[in-house]
Design a protein around this nucleic acid. Structure first.
Length: 464
DNA sequence: GAGTTTGAAACT
DNA sequence: CAGTTTCAAACTC
């Protein structure tokens, strides 16, 4: 525990990019090496050491200690992560050290947490390292991994976690005594209320984890897994979500409770046919709701939450990285980045704003598949570009924007490290058998300490 | 401002 | 996965 905390602390201190991760994607990658088909159609379920399937209609296939094999049951779409049994020797090459670039957690997007497919793919991680038999190490997590990590803390992987127990599992609201629920809501603040409101809005049409309360249902709650108080789980997840959504993971993101960014500065869209619910719409693609736009039949607003979330889910199902910023960050301190996907320009020479690289004021890279590109380092045309000099508007603007937003130092690493600290605190509280209120206080205290350090860093960076 | 061009996203 | 269609922004006149 202390090691974990130290590690996260280091990450907070220096924003290290590499840290220990036991993630679902690593697990899935490993499964691929075992020729286990985990991407067969709409229904994906698998059963492997340490993984607890859950969902409706699925037969619990469990972990075969004898064979150590994986079996597919194509009935449900969800799975859960649990630490592998202590007596299960890691027969697999294990993997812990993962690096990744930036990712995006769309504004008010519970789907990242709810949709395990996000954890199945995307974000390449390097392999290597050792299996952590004592459970997962939570650090440097992606949003999907936060879900997995939260689920994986639960040390209880007994056989009584079959589908039946999950089917019978009540939602948090049903599970908790009313007084606890109330205090939980007030403690978790508007985000909880908002998400519950969303759950309610989605109702039976929701294609998420639970027909009743999708977000809350993704938590490992239930009569037989109650070793951890429900409010802790919810606090952790919601806190992680809240933390992520209120930081600068994406420059255009707005927090649920208000905008860190001036939405008025957002460029208005002019969509006519997409209802602003497809990635054609820049607002939607950037995780923004439309405001002051010129769009027609817009559904990308708070009045159409349900449609909006369904659209988000469709996009994420199609491409888990759909809302990832197209321009990845460069190295620390650099202004320029790199187009994650690369452009495919054919006629513009990548010297017009049709080109996403050019539009982002960056050079094309090996990732691009453009034809006749003139947007490269030594291109004569590029050398005359207005944004090529540090004295140009672009550079001035970039610096200005950075100065304007001291929160830009809240990087993904910092968010992840914070989440890691909170999870570590939760683990410790559980281990020590603290009462619910004590555990909550510990986590909140930890969060306060994290925030203090972040604020210190901000003051440090802005004063220098 | 209307029409054209362009390339990303969506679809088949 | 490649080809085609749809879409909205960028561009031109």
């Amino acid at each position: 525990m202390s090691c974990l905390k130290e590690q996260n602390q280091r990450s907070l201190d220096n924003g290290s990019e590499t840290s220990a991760v036991y993630s679902s994607e690593n697990y899935v990658r490993h499964l691929r090496t075992l020729d286990v088909n985990i991407d067969s159609g709409d229904h994906t379920d698998f059963s492997v050491p340490g993984v607890m399937p859950h969902g409706s209609g699925g037969e619990w296939s469990g972990y075969s200690r004898e064979a150590g094999s994986s079996r597919m049951d194509h009935h449900c779409t969800n799975y859960r992560f649990y630490p592998p049994p202590h007596d299960a020797e890691p027969s697999l090459p294990q993997y812990q050290f993962a690096t990744h670039g930036d990712f995006v957690l769309p504004q008010s997007s519970p789907f990242h947490l709810m949709n395990p497919s996000l954890a199945n793919n995307s974000h390449l991680s390097s392999l290597g390292g050792q299996w952590s038999s004592e459970g997962p190490v939570h650090s440097n997590m992606l949003s999907g991994e936060i879900y997995d990590a939260v689920a994986s803390i639960c040390p209880d992987s007994k056989d009584d976690h079959g589908p039946e127990s999950y089917r019978k599992q009540e939602t948090m609201a049903e599970l908790m005594p009313q007084n606890q629920m109330d205090s939980s809501q007030s403690a978790n603040g508007p985000l909880t209320v908002y998400l519950q409101h969303l759950d309610h809005q989605l109702g039976e049409n929701a294609t998420l984890l639970s027909p009743t309360c999708p977000l809350l249902a993704c938590l490992p709650l239930g009569p037989t897994t109650a070793s951890f108080p429900p409010t802790i789980w919810s606090s952790l997840v919601l806190l992680a979500l809240d933390t992520a959504t209120t930081t600068c993971l994406h420059p255009t993101f707005h927090s649920l409770n208000g905008s860190l960014w001036d939405s008025k500065s957002k460029k208005p869209c002019n969509c006519t046919k997409s209802q602003c619910l497809k990635l054609y719409c820049d607002c939607f693609a950037n995780g923004d709701v439309c405001s002051n736009c010129n769009c027609i039949n817009c559904c990308n607003n708070n009045e159409h939450e349900s449609e909006r979330y369904k659209a988000i889910k469709i996009c994420l199902d199609r491409n888990p990285e759909a809302f990832r910023p197209k321009i990845g960050n460069g190295k620390l301190g650099e202004i320029k980045g790199r187009h994650n996907k690369g452009c495919n320009c054919k006629r513009s020479g990548c010297l017009k704003n049709y080109c996403e690289c050019y539009e982002a004021k960056i050079m094309c890279s090996s990732t691009c598949k453009c034809v006749g590109c003139r947007n490269y380092e030594d291109s004569p045309e590029r050398k005359t570009m207005v944004w090529d000099s540090p004295d140009t508007t672009f550079y001035k603007k970039a610096k200005c924007d950075k100065d304007k937003c001291p929160l830009s130092c809240i990087t993904l690493d910092v968010v992840e490290a914070t989440c890691g600290c909170l999870l570590a605190q939760a683990e410790e509280a559980e281990k020590e058998g603290y009462m619910l209120c004590q555990a909550e206080k510990m986590i909140l205290d930890e969060f306060g300490q994290c925030l203090t350090q972040i604020v210190r860093s901000i003051f440090k960076s802005t004063s220098s």
